[in-house]
Design a protein around this nucleic acid. Structure first.
Lengths: 139, 139
DNA sequence: TCGTACTGTAATAAATATAATTACAGTATA
DNA sequence: TATACTGTAATTATATTTATTACAGTACGA
């Protein structure tokens, strides 16, 4: 899981909370990062239809659908996030030993299975649920 | 998931396959990494009782329990592996905004849940099962 | 319609994390 | 008792991540 994902979720929760157009600069201040980073992440969310943008004065990013309709699996998907990813591959396909040539593939399968269950977990969490955690509603 | 985990699993599968003492140099050759890296990882597996070592001539590392008794959750535990870990924390605890101060904690809970299901998956895979994948047994 | 306040993105620099390597003390074995 | 190993510290090299600068493009509002 990259930090882009954390920034995306934070921004979505913040935009849902604000319910108006917010500039990358203001979002960056809330997230504590650089405005350019916010733009890079949110432009991908825009492409996925999870936020809308308005340019010109008083423009910025805004929520465009009910927070209950956005789950974290959609956010991960929009960013092509792979929860468990290991770039390092042991062994070497060209070696004679079946262990040396086959282990990387076996590990990939294991990571795949972990990613599948991680995505299931993410699908269970919506932006609205996070909002409820941050702003408990008295019953 | 760090690459140490991949190295550990690879080494365990290899040691199980060899069924004898193997030096860090030979293991490193099979894994395609540096012998010192192998020693660092395997010394932790030794502390967890997953391998034994023998020093002196013809020494090295060796499997010490049936491959069917070692699952990947044990390996992860031995290395203190956290499948989904994100060092980057958005926002800032000291900020007034509930979103800015609370999001990092919310994200941590989400990572925790993913880690729990990942560990369940890892517990389902044993070294012996990996060996069977690499060396299919005709029935 | 024109200036302004934005987004989007490329390019670069700075910071950080990861991996390889060197070096060597300690130890059991043949 | 020499040797072949482990264990670990220290260092260097490499890769990745993050911040920053710069600027073209665009819609909004006066």
């Amino acid at each position: 899981m990259t930090s882009d994902f954390a920034i995306a979720v934070h921004a979505l929760v913040y935009l849902n909370h604000r319910q108006e157009s917010v500039s990358s600069e203001q979002i960056a201040e809330n997230v504590c990062t650089h405005p350019v980073r916010v733009r890079r992440v949110l432009s991908r969310l825009k492409k996925a239809g999870l936020v809308v943008t308005r340019e010109g004065q008083n423009g910025g990013y805004a929520a465009c659908c009910p927070a209950a309709d956005i789950d974290l699996a959609q956010v991960a998907e929009a960013l092509s996030e792979v929860p468990v990813s290991v770039k390092y591959r042991t062994g070497d396909l060209d070696m004679d030993c079946a262990v040396a040539s086959g282990m990387a593939g076996v590990m990939d399968q294991i990571y795949d299975r972990m990613n599948a269950v991680c995505r299931q977990e993410l699908a269970e969490v919506t932006i609205d649920q996070i909002d409820q955690k941050l702003f408990p509603r008295t019953v």
